[in-house]
């Protein structure tokens, strides 16, 4: 197990290197205009462009730039480790802002995930147990609605209703937990709900499907033949195999969402990673793009490692060597 984890962590490093390399190649092979020209201001002189190039490090060859980027990443720079340089856009160091924004996004994702698990799993289980009932049909209909509903629409609608019309919640933006836990919570509630409803709907459907498959397994019949109570058959025998696959699903979703809550962040004016990545990509801001990319790649591969380890713990048939 220990060797397996080490090997997977080395894989993670390789994945990060490959993903950043790919980002570099895409950046330089498919340029949306020369970044130096872009950042040199209106009608720049060739001298000015050259000067900007040098200050951004764009005067060096691409392999050289990539080498420098990796070196900074590994050894750190004047703003700490890992070294991520300065933004082309505002010349500010990337690292502190990355940390700042990561907090916002991670708050959003974790709160959302807790909520969607708390909704999705019970709804899926109960729908499976009462398959074909009114409850099942209403739940699955509602789930289909939230799977189909665009997040921006749901977000704007919820803001309109709960903020504008009812005035129950204070508008948008992020308030740090340290500043005021109550305000923090009330500001995050709608984003959590909107993010969670989509995923709760997906999870409810997945859990329901798994449970229905598990119910027809031979070992469930065996459990009944042993004379176990119906409650124990469901809670111990069906749930165990019905819910375990959710772990893999959750790990992948959490990893992808690290850079993928763009719409939710935009609608609720949360200055998170997704938002930042979007702006950086639009503005050819290579250091910011790379920083978010590194974080997302690392998050996805480490979370999938965690999922695989958890799976091996929960399912004895899975063992890694």
């Amino acid at each position: 197990m220990g060797r397996y984890i080490v090997r997977r962590l080395l894989w993670t490093v390789l994945v990060v290197v490959l993903v950043t390399l790919l980002t570099f190649v895409i950046f330089f092979v498919l340029p949306k205009g020369d970044p130096a020209t872009r950042f040199a201001g209106k009608s720049p002189t060739p001298e000015l462009i050259q000067e900007v190039k040098e200050s951004l490090g764009l005067d060096k060859s691409v392999p050289e730039q990539y080498g420098l980027f990796l070196k900074r990443l590994v050894t750190g720079d004047e703003y700490g480790w890992p070294g991520l340089g300065k933004s082309f856009q505002n010349k500010q160091p990337v690292r502190p802002e990355l940390i700042q924004r990561a907090q916002v996004t991670i708050t959003l994702i974790i709160g959302g995930a807790l909520l969607w698990l708390a909704i999705g799993i019970p709804v899926g289980v109960i729908s499976a147990l009462r398959r074909g009932s009114v409850l099942d049909r209403v739940s699955m209909g509602t789930a289909l609605f939230f799977v189909s509903a665009p997040v921006f629409w749901l977000g704007l609608l919820s803001l309109y209703v709960f903020w504008k019309q009812l005035g129950w919640l204070p508008g948008t933006g992020y308030v740090s937990f340290g500043a005021s836990p109550g305000t923090w919570f009330s500001h995050m509630l709608l984003p959590w709900m909107v993010l969670a409803l989509l995923f709760a709907a997906i999870y409810a459907r997945v859990v329901r499907g798994n449970m229905i498959d598990v119910m027809t397994e031979d070992y469930i019949r065996t459990a009944r033949a042993k004379g176990l109570s119906e409650r124990r058959v469901v809670m111990k025998h069906e749930l165990r195999t019905g819910i375990t696959p959710v772990i893999t699903l959750l790990a992948i979703d959490l990893g992808v969402l690290v850079g993928g809550t763009i719409v939710t962040e935009t609608v609720f004016n949360l200055q998170g990673l997704g938002n930042w990545l979007l702006i950086a990509a639009q503005n050819n801001d290579l250091p910011v793009t790379l920083a978010v990319t590194v974080l997302v790649a690392a998050a996805v591969s480490i979370l999938s490692l965690v999922a695989d380890i958890l799976y091996a713990v929960l399912d004895p048939r899975v063992r890694y060597q």
């Binding site: 031979d218 176990l228 025998h237 399912d315």
Partner: peptide, 28 residues
């Protein structure tokens, strides 16, 4: 009743099935 049957199953009447590969819970 369901409850009476439950007490008979496993206790007074035992049952085994065709495929022992799938008849036991894989995770316990």
């Amino acid at each position: 009743t369901t409850e009476e049957l439950r007490h008979i199953r496993g206790d007074r009447i035992g049952m085994i099935f065709q495929d022992p590969m799938t008849s036991m819970h894989p995770m316990y």
